[in-house]
Design a protein around this nucleic acid. Structure first.
Length: 300
DNA sequence: CTAGGATCCTGTCAGC
DNA sequence: TGCTGACAGGATCCTA
C-alpha cells in the first residue's frame, strides 16, 4: 500500500520522534513479520532513518540496521508512554485504517519496539510486510535494495525512455509499477501519473513517443511531490480536526477511487478498469489507446 | 532476457 | 442473517 510519498512521510515523522532513542525490547507477535535475531537490535540506539524506494532502513548503533517494508497494509505507529492518542504525542503512518486510533497493540500488531520514551508498533493486516535485521555495511547489498531503479527525480528523460524501450511489449502501467525500472510509484501514483500525461495504461511501453515519456516522468514527479507536500497518508490526514475521518486522497488524487465522478479536465466520467491485474482508474476521453489524431483519421 | 499470471494473508463489501 | 467471491496503495516466484 504505502508508496514512496507515504514512506517518506513516515520517515520524516519518525525521525522527529525516534532518533537517538534506544530500542529496549522487541516483541514479536508474528514470526513471519520479523527476519533475523531480535537480540542483536535490543539495546541499540536509533542513529538515522533512511529510505530506499518504499523501504525504510533504521541505522542503529552496533553497526546493525533494520529494514522495514510495509508492502500493502503495513503501518508504523509511535506512541509516547502513557499517551494513547493525539497528534502532539504520537505519529501514525502507512495504510490508513482505524488502527491509527486503536488501543495498541491490537489484532494486527505484528512487532512491538519498546523505546525509552515510547513504543513503536509495526501493524500489518495482510502480513506481506516485514522487519529484517541486516548489518549496516550490507544494507546496500540487500537483494531488494540492490535491484531498485532510480527515483523519478534522479532519472532523466533519455534514461527513462530507454528503459521503456527495453520493455516495449509490456503495458505501460505494469512497466512503471516495476521498481526495477522506475522506483517509487505504486497503484495510486501510477494511475495519477498516467492521467497527468494523458496516457492510456494499456498502451505498450514501446509505443510511447519521447514527448509522452517526458510527460509521464514529469507526472510521476509532480503527483508524488504533491502527496509528500500534503503529508501522505498519516494520522493527521486520516483524522480531521473535528475527529471525523478524512480522505487524504481527496487532497490530490484526480482519478484514483474517483470512478463515476467527472474528469476535472473534460467532464467525462472516470472509469475503473483492470490492467496488469490491478484496479486502474482512467478518464476514457483524456487517455485513449490510440491518439485522437489517429482516431479522427479512422472515423473521418 | 521479457511478460503474464499465481501467490503470500486477512478483512471488507456487494450480491444472493 | 449467512454464505460466496471479488478485491485490496506490493513484490516475488514460476512458467512460457
Amino acid at each position: 500500500m504505502p508508496e514512496l510519498p507515504e514512506v517518506e512521510t513516515i520517515r520524516r515523522g519518525l525521525c522527529g520522534f525516534c532518533l537517538q532513542q534506544k530500542i529496549k525490547r522487541v516483541m514479536i507477535n508474528c514470526d513471519k513479520s520479523f527476519i533475523g535475531p531480535k537480540e542483536i537490535i535490543e539495546g541499540q540506539r536509533i542513529d538515522n532513518i533512511r529510505r530506499f524506494g518504499k523501504a525504510l532502513v533504521f541505522d542503529l548503533t552496533g553497526n546493525v540496521s533494520m529494514m522495514i517494508h510495509l508492502r500493502m497494509t503495513g503501518q508504523l505507529i509511535y506512541r509516547l508512554k502513557g499517551k494513547k492518542l493525539g497528534d502532539e504525542d504520537s505519529f501514525a503512518g502507512g495504510h490508513p485504517t482505524d488502527s491509527f486510533l486503536n488501543e495498541l497493540p491490537d489484532k494486527q500488531t505484528r512487532v512491538i519496539f519498546e523505546l525509552e520514551k515510547g513504543t513503536l508498533y509495526f501493524n500489518d493486516q495482510r502480513k506481506f510486510g516485514f522487519v529484517k535485521v541486516i548489518p549496516t555495511a550490507e544494507v546496500e547489498d540487500d537483494n531488494f535494495i540492490r535491484q531498485l531503479a532510480p527515483e523519478p527525480w534522479d532519472m532523466d528523460v533519455d534514461d527513462f525512455y530507454n528503459r521503456l524501450k527495453r520493455h516495449k511489449n509490456s503495458c505501460i502501467k505494469a512497466t512503471i509499477l516495476d521498481q526495477k525500472i522506475i522506483c517509487g510509484l505504486g497503484n495510486i501514483y501510477a494511475d495519477e501519473a498516467l492521467y497527468y500525461a494523458s496516457i492510456h495504461p494499456e498502451r505498450l511501453a514501446g509505443s510511447l513517443s519521447e514527448k509522452e515519456a517526458e510527460n509521464l516522468l514529469e507526472g510521476a514527479r509532480k503527483v508524488m511531490e504533491a502527496s509528500i507536500n500534503s503529508g501522505g497518508s498519516t494520522m493527521a490526514t486520516y483524522v480531521k480536526a473535528d475527529g471525523t475521518k478524512g480522505d487524504y486522497l481527496r487532497l490530490f488524487a484526480k482519478v484514483f477511487r474517483r470512478e463515476g465522478e467527472p474528469c476535472e479536465r473534460c467532464g467525462t466520467e472516470i472509469e475503473k478498469i483492470r490492467v496488469a491485474g490491478r484496479g486502474t482508474h482512467i478518464c476514457p476521453y483524456c487517455q485513449q489507446k490510440t491518439s485522437r489524431q489517429e482516431t479522427r483519421k479512422v472515423t473521418r
